[in-house]
Amino acid sequence: MKIEDLEKKFQDRIDAGEKIEPKDWMPEKYRKTHIRQISQHAHSEIVGMLPEGNWVTRTPTLRRKVGLLAKVQDEAGHGLYLYSAAETLGISRDEMFRQLHTGKAKYSSIFNYPTMTWADIGTIGWLVDGAAIINQVMLTRTSFGPYARAMVRICKEESFHQRQGFEMILTLCNGTAIQKEMAQDALNRWWWPSLMMFGPRDEESPNTEQSVKWKIKRKTNDELRQQFIDITVEQAKVAGLTIPDPDLKWNEERGHHDFGAIDWSEFWRVVKGNGPLNKERLKARNDAWDNGEWVRDAAMAHSEKQAQKEELKKAV
């Protein structure tokens, strides 16, 4: 079969709503796009553990301690199944780590911002996980089988995290003036970076058209961003918090909220590695990897020794 025919057959399958499985034929670009996107997603989970891990030793109560530990552990779990999903496309976890550690692979820029106060932990759950879910719900129906299935499970947990985060914010808003101020300050700092999580505006997003065709994307960046804003504005009202955007207002005609201009120069600065904590996040990952090398080597050596012992037993 000619390559054009294969590609047509492939696209027909996707159009018919069939899932593409790892052993199926796929265009090289489809494979590469998925490796890039799934590994980027996995890296985001792993780097995302750092800003929240920053507060694990300082939670205000035991109940919050257990909740936060469980949440960070879930993220490590998401990283695991996403790396496994990417491995089915013929790349090793070690290679993906190498790409992360050398800065070749990206992760969600939101994690380059600092968690300064306890309210940041609630805000990450509310906004960052909230934004992630909007992206991910769409991905549960993406064309690549292992990715879609990983997303189903991840979405369930993310949705729990989002509710937990919002509940933390509500608790602060129903607390003392100091607590409410802490929550407002966190919203002020995380609002715009959260909107940037949906990526550049549609006219500047070169991947969108192809991604829509492959059902990696069913909605554009701007559509998803609008959906997030409409939901979150209502939640902020419930909490009694003010969204830090003077231009934000309901547009009856569009049936959506209008909002102010996003500072895309900030977005690109952070993407290019010059955000508040890009260097620190990468260093933390590199340190964990480098300091763990002797441990991984030992595990490997031990398992080889055990295998040799088994061989000997069989021989005797």
Binding site: I46, M49, L50, G53, V56, T57, K65, V66, L69, A70, V72, Q73, A76, G77, G79, L80, Y83, A284, D287, A288, N291, G292, E293, V295, R296
Partner: peptide, 22 residues
């Protein structure tokens, strides 16, 4: 153990140590 959360030598050990802490 919680101080190590996110800094373990591998993802699997990171998860296990966090789990023990939990």
């Amino acid at each position: 153990l919680s101080e190590l959360c996110g800094h373990g030598p591998s993802l699997e050990t990171d998860i296990a140590l966090t789990n023990i802490s939990l």
